Amino acid sequence: MPEHHSGRARRIPPTLAAGLISLLAVLALLVTLPGTATAGGVKRPVHPDRDWMGVTIRAHEDGAGPSAAAQLTASVEGVDVSSHNGSVSWSSLWNSGVRFAYAKATEGTSYTNPYFTQQYNGSYDRGMIRGAYHFALPDNSSGTSQANYFADHGGGWSRDGRTLPGVLDMEYNPYGDTCYDMSASELVRWIGDFVDQYRYRTGRDAVIYTSTTWWKKCTGNNGGFGSVNPLWIPRYSSSAGELPYGWDFHTIWQYTDSGPTVGDHNRFNGSLSRLQALANG
C-alpha cells in the first residue's frame, strides 16, 4: 500500500542536527581566521611567511632578464631575507662577497618574522652592515600604526655605524587588489603617515622599496618622496631602468631573485664608505 504523507515537515534526527551545528560552528570560525574578511571588511594576512621583498614583482612585471651582477663590480653586494629563507649561513654569504643584509621584521600589525633574530643579528655578528624591512599592508591598518609596530619589533635604528635605516616595502598586494582597493591619494597619504611616524620614532628617513610600474599605477607616479626617502628599486634585468618620479637615482637595486646563494641579491649604488655613511645617518 502506498505511503501517505501529511503536510507536516519531518523532524531532523538529533544526531544529524548536532552534526549540522558543528559544521556551522567550523564555518563561523573560518570566516574569522586571519586572511578572511571580517564583518568590517578588513583583510588580514594568511601567508605572511610567504611574503618577502619582491615576491609579487616577477609575477606582475616583465623585467626578468639576465643577471647584471658582472656589470656592477664597483658596487657593494647585499642580500635581503625573510622567514622563507630560515636560518641563514652568514659565513657562506660573507665568503661569497656579501657585505650588507636586510631582514624582514614585520608585516601589517600582527606578524613578526620568527627567524628575524638569527638573520638580523647573525649578519651583524659576521661583520655585515644590516637593516630591517616592513612588508606594508595599507588596507589592514594605518601607516602610523604599522610604523609603530615595525619600530617596536626590530625596525629601530641606532648610530653604531652598521645599522641601516628601516625599509618600507610597497609592492603589489599579495592578498587581493593590486593597489589595496585604495585611491592614489589614499596610498600617498598612507605612505606619508608611515615615513613621518618612522622618522619620529627613529630619527631616520625610511628607505622606500617599490617598482616603477607599481608606483605609477598605484600612487599616480607621485613625486613627493624622492628628495627625502632613499629608493630601493627591484628590476631583474641588465639595468635598474626607469625610476619612479621624484627620484634622480636609486640607492639600492634588487637585480635578481634567483642568485647562486640564499636570498634576493642587491647592489648598493656606491662605495662601501658611502654605505657606511648611510648607516651612520
Rank of each mutant, 00 (worst) to 15 (best):
P2V: 12
G7N: 13
R10L: 15
P13Q: 14
L23H: 05
A25T: 15
A28Q: 13
G41M: 06
V42P: 06
V42W: 00
R44K: 06
H47A: 15
P48K: 06
R50T: 08
W52P: 00
T56W: 02
I57R: 15
E77H: 13
G78L: 08
V79H: 03
V79M: 03
S82A: 14
S83H: 09
H84P: 02
H84S: 10
N85C: 01
N85V: 01
G86E: 03
S89R: 06
L93F: 10
L93R: 11
V98R: 07
V98N: 03
S110E: 09
S110R: 07
Y115F: 14
F116S: 06
Q119D: 00
N121E: 13
G122H: 05
D125R: 07
G127W: 03
I129L: 14
I129R: 04
A132D: 09
Y133M: 00
F135W: 12
S141T: 10
T144K: 04
Y149G: 06
G154M: 00
G155H: 09
W157Y: 02
S158N: 12
R162A: 11
L168P: 11
Y172D: 13
G176V: 09
D177W: 08
C179E: 06
M182H: 07
A184P: 00
R189G: 01
W190Q: 11
I191N: 05
F194V: 04
Q197F: 00
R199A: 02
Y200D: 11
R201T: 03
D205Q: 07
D205W: 09
T212N: 11
T213F: 13
T213N: 09
W214S: 00
K217R: 10
C218F: 05
G224V: 04
V228H: 14
L231K: 00
W232L: 00
P234Q: 03
A240M: 05
E242Q: 10
G246H: 04
W247S: 06
D248W: 00
I252T: 03
Y255Q: 04
V262L: 14
V262D: 15
V262M: 14
D264L: 11
D264C: 07
L272Q: 14
S273W: 14
R274Q: 15
L275N: 02
Q276S: 14
N280E: 15
G281W: 15
